[in-house]
Design a protein around this nucleic acid. Sequence first.
DNA 1: TATTGTTATACTCTATAACTATA
DNA 2: TATAGTTATAGAGTATAACAATA
Lengths: 145, 145
Amino acid sequence: MLVDAIAQLSFLVQNSLAEIAGDYDLSLIQTRLLGVLRDREPTMNELGRHLGLDKSSTTGLVSRAQGRGLVARTVSEVDRRVVRVSITDVGRDLVKQVGERFTERIGELVADLPDTERQEFSRLAGRVVLADMHRHGLDPGGAAG
Amino acid sequence: MLVDAIAQLSFLVQNSLAEIAGDYDLSLIQTRLLGVLRDREPTMNELGRHLGLDKSSTTGLVSRAQGRGLVARTVSEVDRRVVRVSITDVGRDLVKQVGERFTERIGELVADLPDTERQEFSRLAGRVVLADMHRHGLDPGGAAG
DNA sequence: TATTGTTATACTCTATAACTATA
DNA sequence: TATAGTTATAGAGTATAACAATA
């Protein structure tokens, strides 16, 4: 059945990512945090919106990552209330490794599909995601892949 | 890209489920717990294996659900060390509602695909899941759909 | 002794409410 | 006053280690 297949696939993918991240002592949310920061230097406010978290949750998340040397805080010069969050070299290296292994794992998952079907699957998945983004307010979002 | 599409789709599905479950004050793991119990009455041990949790985590999870009247514990008559976990009528009703709304939501997600492509997508997703189960030690597993 | 499950403890993750600093 | 972020607090979820009861 369609729902079962898609639901189970999503659990499969999420569990794979969680497992790989766990090898680097990263939770899913910490991994998403680093993923978002790869190509952005958002304010705490923006970061919280990206991750769908309350500002207090964002504070804690960032603080724990900062404690491990994965991210850094910088007070804005123009508005001293604002804090920008950036990824450190250590954090960047870590999320790179997780991303590479995640890519490998997804490759293994679809390894049994013939090339044509694999491409078709990718195309359809992309289309579903795209349709949903259009349905809401856009923004590609930044997971870990 | 394939990895991105599949990863984003999995986040989309998981977020949808989490959101729906949240409307009933259920976390993802509580929802999975109830989903597993729909057609099983496992021991704590078996339950923990199903959910991929340590036995102490399973104890806590079940205790919180029991506190809400969603599941029940029964000490085995044959081996008094063993505890079996079952779903209550309240729990069954709750997971039924979540399941129905989840099914609807998935339907919405793939609504833009023409029938042929939707079927193809379902078939491919099912095939990936199946291949993974074969790769490991089988067992359909019980999400919420 | 071995197994099943619980308890004690510690940490992450999350939200709400109160607070501080800046605008 | 309003906004950005932090702190205090509380609870869910998780694991490790120690424990109790039963086999």
